[in-house]
Amino acid sequence: MGGTDGGAFRRMLRRLTSDVEVLDADDLSEGAQLSGARRAVECASGQEVTMLGRLRSVEFCPHDAEASLEAELFDGTDAVTLIWLGRRRIPGIEPGRTMRVHGRIAVREGRKVLYNPYYEICQAHTP
């Protein structure tokens, strides 16, 4: 068996023995990387980034000063919180959606955050 065949065999064996969540994270990470998007795990505060991932949660957060819509975007490597200030709802922004977002990374309470990111809702990737 050559080097290429052995690698394919190892990948196939891993897919058969790995947890579904691990495989989903691998697929998300690979899709983001192939699209040219920045991996969330590599992003740091102050960087302007374009990311691709899936929304894990979306919630309206009423605060005293200003309400916001917050969503968690996961790209297979790490999660980033998306925050749209002054919004209660945005059509199409719902858990399970695949999105491409663009903005400048900030850190709030130890979490990576994009405030009012530009976004594009993408077609879900099907294997």
Score class of each variant (00 low, 15 high):
T17N: 10
R104L: 03
E109L: 06
G6N: 14
C43K: 03
W84G: 00
R88V: 12
H125G: 08
S18P: 04
L82G: 01
R15S: 14
S29Q: 11
G110R: 12
H63P: 04
A65P: 05
G96T: 03
L69K: 00
D19T: 07
C122D: 08
Q33T: 10
A106E: 12
P95A: 09
L73I: 04
P117W: 02
E59P: 06
D26W: 05
A44P: 00
K112G: 04
I105N: 01
L13I: 11
R11G: 01
G103H: 01
A67S: 13
A25D: 15
L34N: 12
V41L: 12
L114E: 03
T98I: 09
T126F: 14
D5E: 15
G46E: 03
M51A: 05
E120S: 10
E30R: 13
L23V: 07
E109M: 05
E72I: 15
R100S: 07
P62S: 06
L114G: 02
Q123E: 15
R39N: 05
R88S: 14
P127E: 15
T77A: 02
L28M: 11
R89K: 13
H125W: 14
E94S: 11
T126S: 14
L69Y: 03
G76V: 00
D5F: 08
L52Y: 05
E94F: 09
E42D: 15
A65E: 12
S57D: 14
C122M: 14
Q123I: 11
G3F: 08
E30D: 12
S18K: 04
E120M: 10
R56P: 00
V101Y: 04
D64G: 10
R38T: 13
V101T: 05
S35T: 09
I83V: 15
L69S: 01
Q47I: 02
L69C: 01
F60M: 09
H102G: 09
I121A: 05
G103S: 04
L52S: 06
F74Q: 04
M99K: 01
G76M: 02
L69N: 00
A40I: 14
C43L: 07
S45Q: 12
R10L: 15
G110A: 08
D75K: 00
D64F: 11
R111Q: 10
L85R: 11
S29P: 03
R39Q: 13
R104G: 02
I121T: 10
